[in-house]
Design a protein around this nucleic acid. Sequence first.
DNA 1: AACAGAATTTGACCCAGATCAAGCCTTTTC
DNA 2: GAAAAGGCTTGATCTGGGTCAAATTCTGTT
Lengths: 248, 248
Amino acid sequence: MAHDDVYPVSLACGDCPIQHRAVCARCDSDELVELEKIKYYRSFEAGQTVIWAGDQMDFVASVVSGIATLTQTLEDGRTQMVGLLLPSDFVGRPGRSRAAYNVTATTDILMCCFRKKPFEEMMDRTPHIAQRLLQMTLDELDAAREWMLLLGRKTAREKIASLLSIVARRDASIKMSTAAARMTFDLPLTREAMADYLGLTLETVSRQMSALKRDGVIELQGKRHVTVPDMDRLLLEAGDDCDGGFLV
Amino acid sequence: MAHDDVYPVSLACGDCPIQHRAVCARCDSDELVELEKIKYYRSFEAGQTVIWAGDQMDFVASVVSGIATLTQTLEDGRTQMVGLLLPSDFVGRPGRSRAAYNVTATTDILMCCFRKKPFEEMMDRTPHIAQRLLQMTLDELDAAREWMLLLGRKTAREKIASLLSIVARRDASIKMSTAAARMTFDLPLTREAMADYLGLTLETVSRQMSALKRDGVIELQGKRHVTVPDMDRLLLEAGDDCDGGFLV
DNA sequence: AACAGAATTTGACCCAGATCAAGCCTTTTC
DNA sequence: GAAAAGGCTTGATCTGGGTCAAATTCTGTT
């Protein structure tokens, strides 16, 4: 992928119709030009760990392409995914910080990075960036809290249905298609990763996927390719009161 | 409580030794003076709902005294607490927003509020505020993610131990005492509230409290007053890899 | 096309925590 | 000071999801 085509748009722009995710021609602001000057790129292969928990992080970054996961681990190996990084999502934070979690590439990924020092200086000069970052962080916090409800109170079936509906919604927004009744998409996660995200075992994930298939809520072509014949039915299974549901 | 004694310090100051929570004489910055001009107070009685999920929020606020909880609910009544608001914690966000959760007073509380419009204008004038708010929000996000690990992967006993150690730590910082081996504090939550926070039932909470008492990890005077004879032992039971652990 | 190796599904069984149901303190109320 | 009402504890039983183990796809690879 040609680096120069791509901007870390999410940082500079909060008003795009395709919020948070793609390149938008309207975003040719001064801030963006500023950001251009200090950015650099790093790429990682699928399976590589981008950041280890406890690392001193000297940069902040935004995902350009590919998928990465944020995970936390107990010393006996139990792990919980606490976030999913899709293109245009942001990792890291200004100020001194040690990473509290691992960041691992699920697919090959390309990240647009900024060394912390110049990034912070730039935040002081252009207050819009700090406000935009605040917006994004608040959205993530809402998503995290939504996920707490899922982890604490939903059944396995509801958890799976929630995850599927969130992936479907996010997939639709990447393809810039409007959410339809019937949708088709690829799961970006293995059964094990789904389990780590949902606080389940991979066997339970597999069983519930089979159950949803048996009950006609989803159709499966292969293991990763999912078709949802009736989106409303899926949302009902997810047990959400409203359409709610962000994704980190 | 006399209103004029109290400042929403957490907003203006990130460097206090007693970070996030008490009044600090060093915080007499211009920002604080600005904030003083636009603040007003509201108080609520224990049990009152401060904000309903779905409400249009036209203010942001910081807790001055008392305790409130953030909860999310599924339509069949299952509820999950997603945050605890202790003195100096912040609720609400700039920009248009509907509350995604209920905020309920656990004790009588006093809140220091700012109408959104003037608050946002002030954020534009004093970028330090936005950066401070970003700091605080990132801390909350880290805490939320830590809590996701707890909800998804910890056993009931570990969950209780984690909650107790967090309350102990936070209590120590309010009292400005340094964390000692032996600590004593009051639980600010009923068994039911603890259950909602931990994703358990109140019966399980009660049983595990009894078990920890039986095993000498804690001592109980009455129902709310807890003594931890050996803090390290408690942390061990909590299963955390490091001292970790923030509280929302 | 046959093989190797990983990812996934399915089955059998078990257990931590939920559910249902009494009883037991403390407060508060009259 | 008796009664009512919350909050809390404890017991008996049930069950959703975990654990362990064995097939069954899928992916490349030679």
